[in-house]
Design a protein around this nucleic acid. Structure first.
Lengths: 220, 220, 220, 220
DNA sequence: AATGAATGAGGGTTCATTCAT
DNA sequence: TATGAATGAACCCTCATTCAT
């Protein structure tokens, strides 16, 4: 069974790695130009294959978008779970959740903005997507409430606060460039500081003026 | 000349009001579904006319988008100018600029998100649009710098801070509903408070928990 | 009845002169760019009026084309009649017919090329137009036959000869320019000479090398 | 490599033959009804495919027209080159050039009249087309000049003479029918005789009255 | 697994035509 | 008489999707 000591990828592994590459490329393209403005030809060309080849990995364009959503939501809930383990206060958990989520988005998928393309989905997919997103947002609002309760977050309207933060968050892939002046880690830390300053009940902390000197993501 | 005491709209007035209605409808549609996902048929239908009728008011779809841009930028620079007159500190000016801009966007045009659709423009229009947007963003960053200099704003990276704030700002039309629990004025005030808390050098002020009790936009 | 000594044009005269101007403009435009490529907007603009105004003078675009045809055919049959009176031989009549026809076309209407746009007409108009054109071509072929019979024209296939000549004739408005090096009269004479040389039974006559020195149209 | 003795067309061959069929169909349609009056639907229907299928072979309608132009010009310059080899006098070369060009046009492409549709091209294509056409016309005029110099052509204005001849020539596809009484070869010979008679310095030769008895194209 | 060919639906745009003023 | 507004049909073109190879 284990020929070549498993150094030769199996058929299934090849398939999965191609599918993943397609997903990443699609997410990037959707983020860059929007779902409707992105043609399958464009995605295929960037992958060096033909448009028709994509249909071996996804039944249609919408599914591609839905897969981006789901990947993003996986990252989101995973970030949430890890933050719940590592942090105790509402504020700490919120910050870490957002930081983990953002850093992965920037590194792997840059799939945040696709969250805006909900209208492009079919009603059943749309419903599913909205439900997942709402569940995540609800969890974040709960963290805010927890923070208010435990005194780590200032009294505020949790819904409005999270709308504001998520807007800023989803916007980041639009202006962030891997080739730009800041690394993903630096950006994540700097933005997290801003968010924390916005909600923290503690006296407003100082901020690093030069993002390049920022400490690591979860540092406080 | 002034028949019927000018209560009967002249032909020019009729034309302008129709054109304005089209502009508003287009901005709303572009915001709701995105530029490429919005068909002229859809806009026309919402206005109760035929697609071809739109071509009396705009030579093509791109011009329609560009007009939304320009109206938004007019509001933006107007807000900036008024804030410079009424406020003295960098922080005060920044807050008032954003508040005035947002309130008008929500009331009149809800045209914020169209600012993302830059890729849909022809190169010359695109260049023009980017230039205007950059000028506005630059002016906002300057306000941040002024605020840092005059001590009203905490030391921070102005570029990154403004990216964050504008992301949150442009996202608002996506979730704000006139039929929702908050008025445009309340929403504007609440969001402005959050922004101010994020950047203020002063001890973090308290926030209103219930947005419905928020004071007016420019109150502090 | 005769007020102002008839120096003031009556309503009917005004109407007719406008209609004639429209006809001339339409013929020129159709010749220049072709029937389908010419929009009523273009014609109207050249006349300084609105597209809708044209409908006071013609019920539709096809009628406009048909009127051009008919005007051209009027000129054609008129030329034929005059040539029959002034000339005796088949060759003489043919030459004069073509010369008169061409000169008027160039001067007044430049409506030759519209003869190619037959496909644009409705079946009834098309039938009528083809019939008129055929009658004219038949008459020209008869002149050729007469010329062969009376010895003024070389033995040839009349149908093919007339196709050839009319092709050359209808092409002239495409390259002739009033602002060019030759007058309409000079061009007419020079082309007539070529046609005559093609069909004459007499020893091939010399030609003027410099068109500018050509004698008048009907000179031989 | 050479399976089935190369009797089975390869994919590339299939593509090329389809493309050629499309080109021929388009040229015929443009000639028959004019560029603007011809819809891609019409062409596609005649070929038994869908409009969208055409876009596999040409990026747009204008390119289709341009390809007709270029094919016609290829034939033109090829005819010119062959005539220069086979004939010595200006008159001989001119006659053979026109005969070869015409016969191929009638047989293969009937693409003459498309030469009139220059206005339908984009400025760059238009410039290119006009340049090629002018070069061909210039070459023909030079043949006329050569003929005058070597005594085979009567003294005349070369420019005007060629305009006249080319007008007649381009008109031929409008009246010639493969199903008509004359073959392409017969028509070519008969028309060539007329052109020759028009310009020859020799005593006007007799013409065949019945085109059906015409000798072959290049016979004299 | 991948391709090239083909399709059908839809979108943006033009334009002849109509109509109220 | 002339105009501006509006319409509906037609056209070019794009694109997601299917299918035979």
């Amino acid at each position: 069974m284990a020929v070549w000591k498993n150094t030769v990828p199996s058929k299934d592994e090849l398939y999965e790695s191609k599918r993943a590459a397609l997903l990443r490329e699609a997410a990037a393209a959707f983020n860059r130009r929007g779902f409707h403005a992105t043609s399958l030809d464009e995605i295929a060309q960037n992958l060096g294959v033909t448009k028709a080849a994509l249909y071996h990995y996804f039944p249609n364009k919408q599914t591609l978008l839905m897969a981006c959503f789901e990947k993003a939501m996986d990252v989101a809930f995973d970030s949430l779970a890890r933050a719940r383990q590592q942090e105790a206060t509402g504020r700490g958990r919120l910050r870490l959740t957002l930081a983990l989520y953002l850093e992965q988005m920037l590194d792997e998928l840059s799939a945040c903005v696709v969250l805006m393309e909900e209208n492009a989905l079919t009603p059943p997919d749309h419903a599913r997507m909205v439900q997942m997103r709402d569940r995540f947002e609800q969890a974040l609002r709960d963290l805010v409430r927890d923070g208010i309760a435990d005194g780590s977050i200032v009294a505020c309207d949790p819904k409005l606060a999270m709308f504001t933060i998520l807007g800023a968050l989803n916007w980041i892939p639009k202006w962030f460039r891997h080739s730009g002046p800041w690394t993903a880690t630096q950006t994540t830390a700097a933005v997290s500081d801003l968010f924390e300053r916005m909600l923290s009940s503690a006296p407003a902390p100082a901020l690093a003026r030069d993002v390049g000197l920022m400490p690591l993501t979860t540092a406080k």
